[in-house]
Amino acid sequence: MRAIFASLLVTAAHLATAHYTFPNLIINGVTSSDWQYVRMTENHYSQGPVTDVNSNAIRCYELDSTSATSAGIASVTAGSTVGFKASNIMGHPGYFSAYLTPASPAANSNNAGLGKTWFKIWEWSPTWSTSAGLGFPSANIVSFNFTIPKNTPNGQYLLRGEQIALHLAGTQGGAQFYIGCAQINIVGGGSGTPTPTVSFPGAYSPTDPGILINIYVQPSGFPGYTAPGPAVWKG
């Protein structure tokens, strides 16, 4: 019995370290404390992913209605480098992206980001060549960084960072979504008009070619990885 219990503990530890959350916002190289500006997610203990793109969890994966009010709002200058730090090494191969949505009436409101208001500002896609196959963003990283477009209008926003882990994505519902939403106030911005905009849920379909994909075997004539969601607004 002791041997079985020890085996279960090892298995549980392995599963926990294989998954992760994004509790830390990075602004110009400075990393916040856990959940200081990021809404605490439902998986903050289990660290398990979202797998249903049609669930409300695909938006920000909040723990509950207090996640927004418990987190602060960080001031970010447009054009700054920002990012998210993971709770564990991100060992799964996949696709990264970041979205913004204007936050009405405020970034710490539960009503923020409920409409068709999200726009993509960055993505990091797998590469493809017939000789080398699919190549994925650097393995075993602990953070990812990107730039807030300089022409983003001033105001409060939700900043959504995401990795879609694709190691099990060969069957529908197998892709794993790791998500964090930071609450920010953008200053020093411009007068851009971010487009196109999408909603969460709504931006993705479970059969999108970038979500339902066997990364280990590609069919004849494979065109390369097709990123899900809208095109990137570069601002």
Rank of each mutant, 00 (worst) to 15 (best):
P49K: 13
V50Q: 14
T51E: 14
V53P: 07
V53G: 05
N54G: 05
N54P: 03
N56C: 01
A57W: 10
A57G: 03
I58E: 04
I58G: 03
R59D: 00
C60W: 09
C60F: 09
Y61Q: 07
D64Q: 00
D64H: 02
S65V: 15
T66E: 12
S67L: 05
A68R: 10
A68E: 08
T69W: 05
S70F: 06
S70V: 09
G72R: 03
G72H: 07
G72C: 12
A74Y: 02
V76G: 04
T77H: 11
T77W: 10
A78G: 10
A78M: 13
A78P: 08
S80G: 07
T81Q: 12
V82W: 09
F84V: 03
K85F: 09
K85I: 08
S87K: 14
S87W: 14
N88Q: 15
N88S: 13
N88T: 15
M90Q: 14
M90P: 09
M90C: 11
H92S: 15
P93L: 07
G94Q: 10
Y95W: 14
S97H: 11
A98L: 05
A98Y: 05
A98T: 10
Y99I: 01
L100K: 10
L100S: 05
P102Q: 08
P102W: 04
P102H: 02
S104E: 14
S104I: 09
A106E: 13
A107L: 04
N108D: 04
N108Y: 00
S109R: 01
G113H: 08
L114T: 04
G115H: 01
T117A: 10
F119L: 08
F119T: 00
K120M: 02
I121C: 06
I121A: 06
W122K: 01
E123L: 00
P126T: 00
P126V: 01
P126C: 03
T127M: 05
T127C: 08
W128L: 00
W128C: 05
S129W: 03
S129L: 01
S129V: 01
T130D: 08
T130Y: 02
A132E: 11
A132Q: 06
L134Y: 00
